[in-house]
């Protein structure tokens, strides 16, 4: 556990090494938290609960995912394999770290919306259970629980524009069928839910490959063009078909959803060129949380909160082309 805490401390020190980054954290986060708190006070309880629950699920899922990866690392490549391979001695410190992460995030959730704590904890539990279940399923599978195989399959899907076309057609035709068979609200909900998972799958990125592209002379723009093709084809397929088979509003929302996923992918891609995976995910998460909080507090501010750091990241990522530190 001391080993992991030391790494977390070093990562945080790396991410906020510049005074401007630290100042941004110290000033912007409390302001955004206060703004989010005031926004939550105004929205209906069920809506606020839904947003908090989404946050909780994401925290539970990603914290468990991260810790599962760390246990696997320690059991195979790490310096503390002996301790990590003894299940009891490995699980206790990681369970404590998981609890610490959930409590910290619950504290933030409690700050912005005290009555949403229950939603948060329930959803975080669901996130932990979902990731835990995936671990059990994978380790029981005939492939010997090869998580890499799943990641590789996703990356292959994301790397081929034809996947975007096929998935786009499948989603668009399913939505069209829904629109013919279901009531308007239900068909609209279905049309917006259907593209979520394919869009996320097509936005899969591998940190090592992104660094390799940078080291091989690919500029950020070239790397984005190479990796966003399937997602762009997906969006380009569903939007016109939605417009013809459902309605323009649903098509616009679906297009917006694909653009948001694309922008998140671009942020991750830029971060992967600059930092080791863990630090890159951490940096991208902080940026996206800041954008979400800004979007909740002052919606007009969200594009600025997004654009300013992204322009800076882009400059640094361009400078990383060919570079091996």
């Amino acid at each position: 556990m001391r080993h992991e805490l030391l790494l977390i401390f070093n990562d945080a020190r790396g991410a906020f090494s510049g005074w401007s980054n630290l100042l941004t954290l110290l000033v912007a986060v409390p302001i955004l938290l206060l703004a989010a708190r005031s926004w939550f006070a105004e929205v209906p309880a069920d809506q606020a609960g839904f947003v908090i629950a989404l946050f909780g699920f994401a925290v539970g899922l990603s914290a468990t995912h991260l810790l599962a990866e760390r246990v696997q690392y320690h059991q195979t490549l790490g310096m503390l394999a002996e301790e990590a391979l003894a299940v009891r001695s490995a699980l206790a410190p990681f369970a404590i770290l998981l609890a610490m992460a959930v409590i910290l995030a619950a504290g933030l959730a409690g700050l912005v919306h005290p009555s949403g704590l229950g939603y948060f904890l329930a959803a975080a539990g669901a996130g932990i259970a979902a990731r835990g279940l995936l671990l059990i399923v994978l380790s029981a599978s005939s492939s010997g629980g090869n998580y890499n195989a799943l990641s590789r399959a996703l990356l292959r899907l994301a790397g081929d524009w034809r996947s975007g076309l096929l998935l786009g057609l499948a989603v668009a035709l399913s939505a069209a069928a829904g629109s013919a068979l279901l009531a308007k609200e239900a068909s609209m909900a279905l049309a917006l839910l259907l593209p979520c998972i394919p869009a996320l799958a097509l936005a899969s990125l591998d940190a090592g490959s992104m660094r390799f592209l940078a080291q091989s002379g690919f500029s950020p723009w070239q790397a984005i063009r190479k990796h966003a093709r399937a997602l762009v084809v997906f969006g380009g397929t569903i939007v016109p078909v939605y417009a013809m088979t459902t309605d323009l509003v649903t098509a616009a929302f679906a297009g917006g959803l694909v653009i948001v996923v694309l922008l998140v992918m671009i942020v991750r891609l830029l971060c992967y060129r600059l930092y080791p995976k863990r630090l890159a995910d951490f940096t991208a998460s902080i940026l996206l949380i800041a954008v979400i909080l800004a979007g909740i507090a002052v919606p007009l501010l969200a594009p600025v909160v997004f654009a300013v750091p992204v322009v800076r990241l882009w400059g640094m990522a361009s400078n990383s082309t060919w570079r091996i530190a």
């Binding site: 890499n148 990641s151 090592g208 390799f212 592209l213 080291q215 082309t321």
Partner: peptide
């Protein structure tokens, strides 16, 4: 820097090779 990089073949450190790529894909890139 970029002009120097474009003129030279350079073997990347083996620890920085992308694990999620096949050898043929890396060579083609």
């Amino acid at each position: 820097r970029a002009a120097r990089a474009a003129q030279m073949g350079f073997a990347p450190p083996i620890e920085s090779l992308p694990e999620m790529m096949r050898v043929r894909e890396a060579l083609a890139l």
